[in-house]
């Protein structure tokens, strides 16, 4: 296997449940070593995609490969190298956190029974759950359950971590800790496939993103490129609004509007410096001029055409 293989790739991947086409013609490309943010509104097919990648759901169109091998056929070889948190944690309520981890470890045919306890202990340590290791799972709070789910993904050294909403249910401190952990794992060279509805989380952690909408990938690539997809805008503060509008119109900025916080318009192909020079040359007193930082959320809404409403 060559190292330049993608960690996850798919080709025309599709899945239909009854009449509902949940995933359509999906081409995923997750570079090895990247931290890939998988975002999209609820019901856009993210979880079904993850389930197909992990061999839980059979695709009915296209194909997907994880760590360079075809899934689900190569599941027995590939999955020991993949840690996964899918749609929230799930454990036996009347077993302790540690016993639950040992059960999952026992299911993995490649794991070494001699080191099971020490590995489970290390995983619990890493997510800050060692003190509650022998408590029954049913006594765990939502945040502790989430941490146990992450601990299960860390039972073995992994090449790929698939994390579906890893900070769900965590308090702000827990969220920080988990994000720190994810960043740490990414720095160690583990490829991270992070599905999230928290755009700030993706923006903070990821270097690549894929945006889903109604089962289709609407944008995919390095995070910086996605930012670039959004129309660049500027904001101008001045007292001479009338002259300023004339100058802007002369430069070809047609969509400038005056808001409470000054004049906002699209830059188009213009360089910001040119606008400022033209304004000053025309005698407009410029109090402030600057590009408007496009947040990922703006780009997201522009791409998906919706906020976080559930897709029908």
């Amino acid at each position: 296997m060559s190292p330049d293989h993608a960690a996850i790739s798919s080709n025309g991947l599709g899945k239909r449940f009854g009449r509902q086409q949940v995933v359509v013609d999906l081409d995923l490309d997750v570079p090895r070593g990247s931290c890939y943010g998988f975002i999209g509104p609820n019901g856009s097919g993210k979880t079904t995609t993850i389930r197909m990648l992990l061999g839980l759901v059979r695709p009915d169109a296209g194909s997907c490969a994880v760590l360079g091998e075809e899934m689900p056929a190569a599941g027995g070889r590939v999955l020991p190298r993949v840690g996964a948190l899918v749609e929230g944690p799930a454990f036996h309520p009347y077993l302790s956190g540690l016993t639950n981890l040992l059960r999952l470890d026992a299911a993995d045919g490649t794991s070494d029974p001699a080191t099971a306890r020490s590995r489970a202990g290390a995983a619990l340590e890493r997510v800050g759950l060692i003190a509650a290791a022998n408590k029954r799972y049913r006594a765990y709070s939502l945040g502790m359950r989430q941490r146990l789910g992450i601990a299960a993904a860390l039972l073995q050294p992994r090449d790929l971590l698939v994390l579906d909403e890893p900070t769900n249910g965590l308090d702000p401190q827990g969220t920080r800790e988990v994000r720190h952990l994810v960043a740490e794992l990414a720095a160690e060279g583990t490829t991270i496939f992070l599905s999230s509805h928290l755009l700030s989380e993706v923006e903070q952690l990821c270097d690549h993103v894929g945006v889903m909408r109604e089962g289709r990938m609407v944008a995919q690539g390095p995070l910086a490129e996605l930012h670039g997809l959004r129309t660049r805008r500027f904001r101008l503060r001045t007292a001479d609004t009338a002259v300023a509008f004339q100058v802007l119109a002369g430069l070809g900025v047609g969509d400038a509007v005056e808001g409470a916080d000054g004049i906002v318009g699209g830059l188009g192909e213009l360089e910001p410096d040119r606008i400022v020079r033209a304004l000053v040359d025309a005698g407009v007193g410029v109090r402030a001029f600057g590009p408007l930082a496009a947040s990922l959320e703006d780009a997201f809404v522009e791409l998906t055409g919706e906020g976080f409403d559930v897709s029908a």
Binding site: A106, S111, P157
Partner: peptide, 23 residues
């Protein structure tokens, strides 16, 4: 090849029937 990958490569496939059955 990244560091974690190397450590996984040496892991042999063992039968898991017995352990899972006990569990």
């Amino acid at each position: 090849m990244s560091a974690p990958e190397a450590s996984v490569a040496v892991r042999q496939r063992r039968g898991s029937f017995g352990r899972l059955f006990v569990s």
